[in-house]
């Protein structure tokens, strides 16, 4: 899923401090799971802003809506009739949702209410770690299911580098060396022969190096 973190409330206040009608818009998907932008967080931010404005002696109407998703036309359409009523919308969706909102509703400024961080997994409640950088050409099949692109600090494809020590990466002793994990995993799978094969130069044109990307699937287009 997409992992996001809360934006400091001071930053959000700075965006909206001069507005009078504000919508806090949550998203029911990834940001709900990582507890940054779901219904609960919408409620907390809305309450915080209401108290902030009252304490400033200002009057402001703060509404709360949480959509099923903000990265899909059909769900964003649900606020079509109300979006224009606001002076500002704070979207607690990931950067995709915020942008999709901004593309769809032109008359209202849309502000991000979270910091979108990475594609990752919930290791335990309150701990999310990166797993994928959407390189567009997945190589997990040859690396024992461990991604060197997102989990090796140097993104090297024939690792480890000389900095790998006691299973940890040289940039941080708390960080597992991705290549150590790959070797351990291939060993456990009795596939160390795969490790011996030199991985050819990766085609990074499917990654960000090729500019903004798109996926076109004519087979499912109508």
């Amino acid at each position: 899923m997409i992992v996001a973190d809360k934006k400091p409330v001071e930053e959000i206040i700075e965006f909206v401090k001069d507005n009078k009608k504000i919508l806090i818009l949550g998203c029911n998907e990834c940001v709900t799971v990582c507890e940054a932008g779901g219904k609960k967080e919408v409620g907390v931010l809305a309450s915080t802003l209401r108290m902030y404005f009252l304490n400033q002696g200002k009057e402001a109407k703060i509404d709360e809506i949480t959509l099923e998703r903000q990265c899909d036309h059909e769900y964003l359409e649900e606020i079509r009739d109300v979006a224009d009523e606001y002076d500002a919308i704070v979207s607690l969706a990931c950067g995709v949702g915020v942008q999709f909102m901004a593309e769809k509703y032109h008359s209202v400024p849309i502000y991000p209410g979270v910091n979108t961080c990475f594609l990752g997994a919930t290791e335990e409640r309150g701990l999310w770690t990166e797993r994928c950088q959407a390189c567009g050409n997945c190589m997990l099949g040859i690396t024992g299911g461990i991604c060197p692109v997102s989990r090796c600090a140097k993104r090297i494809l024939n690792g480890p580098c000389g900095g790998s020590s006691k299973g940890k990466c040289e940039i941080n002793k708390d960080l597992d060396c991705a290549w150590q994990l790959i070797i351990d995993r291939l060993k456990a799978l009795d596939r160390l022969d795969d490790y011996e094969k030199i991985c050819p130069i990766k085609d990074w044109s499917t990654d960000r190096a090729g500019g903004p990307r798109k996926v076109v699937r004519e087979d499912v287009q109508i």
Binding site: V9, V44, T48, M51, N55
Partner: peptide, 8 residues
């Protein structure tokens, strides 16, 4: 933390 930030 929130109450402190907003001056309450």
């Amino acid at each position: 933390k929130i109450l402190e930030t907003i001056g309450i």
